[in-house]
Nucleic acid binder design. Sequence first.
DNA 1: TGCCATACTGATAACGATTCTCATTTTCAG
DNA 2: CTGAAAATGAGAATCGTTATCAGTATGGCA
Lengths: 144, 144
Amino acid sequence: MATDPDPGTPAAPRARERSTRQFEAVRDELARGDDFRSAQDIHASLGARGTAVGLATVYRALQTLADSGAADSLRSPAGQAVYRVCGQVHHHHLVCRSCGRTVEVQGLAVERWAEKTAGANGFSDVEHTVELTGTCTPCRTTSS
Amino acid sequence: MATDPDPGTPAAPRARERSTRQFEAVRDELARGDDFRSAQDIHASLGARGTAVGLATVYRALQTLADSGAADSLRSPAGQAVYRVCGQVHHHHLVCRSCGRTVEVQGLAVERWAEKTAGANGFSDVEHTVELTGTCTPCRTTSS
DNA sequence: TGCCATACTGATAACGATTCTCATTTTCAG
DNA sequence: CTGAAAATGAGAATCGTTATCAGTATGGCA
């Protein structure tokens, strides 16, 4: 092997250095709506719009976006990764388990709790992930 | 094709009618811990324990359990479906991003916030997932 | 402006998780 | 005990996602 020339930045393969039509296309398509969309979906929409972009490239672009914080990603109950453009404001998601409708929520309470709890256990530089899942009003009345 | 003889119950294949060693084994294995576990994991544990159960059967049992409300299920960030017996003491995890050390934490504050936030948005039957990631004291002093 | 190293793309193979198929085994009512 | 039907399990089939790798295009530089 004798791998690892390791110039000093061991694990940072995620930094776009050139701008391309394809990457912009994916970014734009994602920004076109504010809902969570799957890679396959984006790929299809792009194709339908005439701006064909390879599926692999869509996956890469989406990952890069999520990685740089420009997009949020999570797993749909069906098991697909879904992405959405993300505002700068830190927030969490409240997702309907039935229709998938998503609401952005914020909570000073959680933020504080996270800080406090972590600190109390000797942890620093805390990040947190919070997912709320429930049934929204329309779905509740419909299905029962 | 002339398909669909349709005897009258088109979509209700989810009702266990006979009890079997395999189903019990899966149920027990899941109950043995109170964490979320993947089907593959359960299958492996079962095998290691000498109580071999087919992978397909594990998947079926887990689905049936989740379906009947005896288990909770969600998708891990890795994209796997994970299951947990319902009715355990609810807690969250504080994980060190460096050494992987995990601390179980509880927080009335989050629980309340989750309830309140969901309710305010018209959601009911709320579940929540919280993950805290940070750097623990030993790791902080070591690496810097 | 033209050249070149190399980042990016895209078709396709590889992969891992989950579901489906179907022959065989097991359960349970009579 | 017997038979019909449920349940199992090994392996094939799916499906979403990632890895490969040769070809293309971008941006720095002469």
